[in-house]
Amino acid sequence: MALRTLKLEIFRYNPNVSGDKPQMQEYILEEEPDMTLFMALTRLREEQDPSLIFDFSCRAAVCGSCAMLINGRPKLACKTMTKDLRKKITLMPLPVFKLIGDLSVDTGSWFRAMNKRLEAWVHTNKEFDPDAQEGRMDNDLALRIYESERCIECGCCVAGCGTAILREEFISSAGLNRLARFFIDPRDERSPDQYFEVIGNEYGTFGCVGLMACDDLCPMEIPLQQQLAFVRRKMLVAGLTGSGR
């Protein structure tokens, strides 16, 4: 494989530095074998511009820290190899989320607020008994729960969704997928009615217009279309049969 000279156009803006203005800055970097954007950005920071702000943690595509717009598309930078990109690469921070600086955005706070709003935890009246055997569960159901639970809260789906960009209240597919996980979990004793209260509305399941960017962009390849449709159908039934408002 021929190694190239890469030209990176990177969004720069540090809101904490007074007088700083948003701009695109260009960097030149020699490509290396098997180079990922994690390596490229680290090298830029260590050799050319140590003030460059970006987020990585696991650098193994499991923690969701490093999503950014790579040539316009939300992707995980740590698992994007430069050899799959053209010579000129544009990097921008994700939209929707609050900008911290340069390529870093506050996905953490967004997801925390979302999880609070959904009360995304198991609601149960049972007490834990340390001496008792665990409750049984069908393995297929456990795997189905895991299928939704795999979301790493990277925000790619949110940043790619036109609805989320237009409406800041929209819970987005990550939220609906998270809810689906509790909906099918028998340990969560919430009734369909209670779920309907939370997401059976324009800010939740009925706000999605089916743009499907989420489904195409999710780096974990979670089947978001099926998850969204599942929630929508369940909420339809819950809304028609339930006593909700």
């Binding site: 935890w121 340390p130 665990e134 409750g135 569960m137 795997l143």
Partner: peptide
Amino acid sequence: PVAVRQLSYWGCPWNRVV
């Protein structure tokens, strides 16, 4: 064992015996 079972009670989707 208590720790693992408590995680199950809290919702961890442990794989199960088939």
